[in-house]
């Protein structure tokens, strides 16, 4: 059924005016529809390769198996800083799934910058970083599902069920998605550095190692000396991996709320940083002719 807005906008479109409806709610609905659509097609695009992606990521089982052997020895005398062996393995299943599903958006951006294709996106009615984020995040969400499934099945087989699984996962799931958004924004930010650096892969490596350590990828932050743990807990890398995984294995509604809030703050901060960096990059494109 055609809405009044449909008719108004369609009439406008034919007369050569943009199809937009310029009210605050209209703008929000328009942007939600646009980026929702980009995200959906990003997910659809990823589904084409899902089978090969799953095959490639079966090594997650190997990682969890090795980790299981290692932590079984470390935790032989009982839990350390509150983590049992069961919790530890399920924790690692979550952090690994977030890390592996994030992907390498920076490479696409780097290619667009190198070939000069990025400059032509300025003639489109959307900001390039927002489009790339939505496209890539849609794909990352699709990749996340099988990785979580592989991780959970592996953890179940290796150490048995996680206590309060349903409650934990219901609290952790929004946080996992937000953590993935933080990770995608980081990789977007690194990709945008391609306007200044010919190869941004080293930046990605550094970032990856920072997530490994300060994001609690292999070792929960609680194992650090207290002063370092206190700093690490508020870093975006912790909100990307540590907090979502911790929520899954040690569910707590109050912690969940502060985690979501912290994640939203970091998402806003990183999105702002991406926008500023792209604005600087656009100035650079003007100076160099695209």
């Amino acid at each position: 059924m055609r809405s009044r807005n449909d008719d108004r906008a369609a009439a406008g479109g034919r007369s050569g005016r943009p199809f937009r409806v310029n009210t605050a709610s209209g703008t929000i609905a328009r942007l939600a529809r646009r980026y929702g659509c980009i995200l959906r097609y990003g997910a659809r695009n990823q589904l084409i390769y899902l089978r090969s992606f799953i095959m490639r990521n079966f090594f997650l089982i190997v990682i969890l198996f090795v980790m299981h052997r290692l932590w079984r020895v470390i935790l032989a005398d009982g839990p350390i800083v509150g983590f049992t062996l069961v919790q530890m393995l399920w924790y690692l299943a979550v952090t690994e799934a977030i890390e592996l599903s994030r992907g390498r958006l920076f490479q696409d951006i780097q290619d667009d910058v190198r070939t000069g294709a990025v400059v032509y996106t300025l003639a489109r009615p959307y900001p390039y970083p927002a489009f790339e984020f939505a496209r890539w995040f849609g794909g990352a969400l699709v990749r996340l599902v099988p990785l979580l499934a592989i991780g959970f099945v592996s953890a179940l087989a290796l150490v048995g069920p996680l206590p309060r699984f349903a409650y934990g996962i219901s609290l952790a799931l929004p946080s996992i998605v937000l953590g993935l958004a933080i990770g995608t924004l980081w990789v977007l930010l690194i990709g945008l550095l391609a306007f200044w650096s010919e190869d941004v892969t080293p930046f990605y490596w550094i970032y990856q190692k920072i997530v490994f350590i300060f994001g609690g990828m292999f070792l929960p932050i609680d194992y650090f000396p207290e002063w370092l743990a206190a700093i690490s807990r508020v870093l975006p890398t912790a909100f990307q991996a540590y907090w979502p995984a911790r929520l899954a294995v040690a569910p707590d509604a109050a912690v969940a709320m502060t985690t979501y809030a912290g994640q939203l703050v970091w998402i806003a901060g990183l999105a702002g940083a991406c926008a500023l960096l792209f604005a600087a990059a656009t100035k650079r494109m003007h100076a160099h002719g695209g």
């Binding site: 449909d6 369609a10 479109g13 328009r30 529809r33 646009r34 659509c37 695009n45 084409i48």
Partner: peptide, 23 residues
């Protein structure tokens, strides 16, 4: 989009350019 059929790209572009669904 290289891996998707053109119809998907048309729908996507329609949304990007805020073309109402019926139009």
């Amino acid at each position: 989009w290289f891996h998707l059929p053109p119809l998907d790209s048309f729908h996507l572009l329609g949304n990007v350019y805020d073309v109402p669904p019926a139009t």
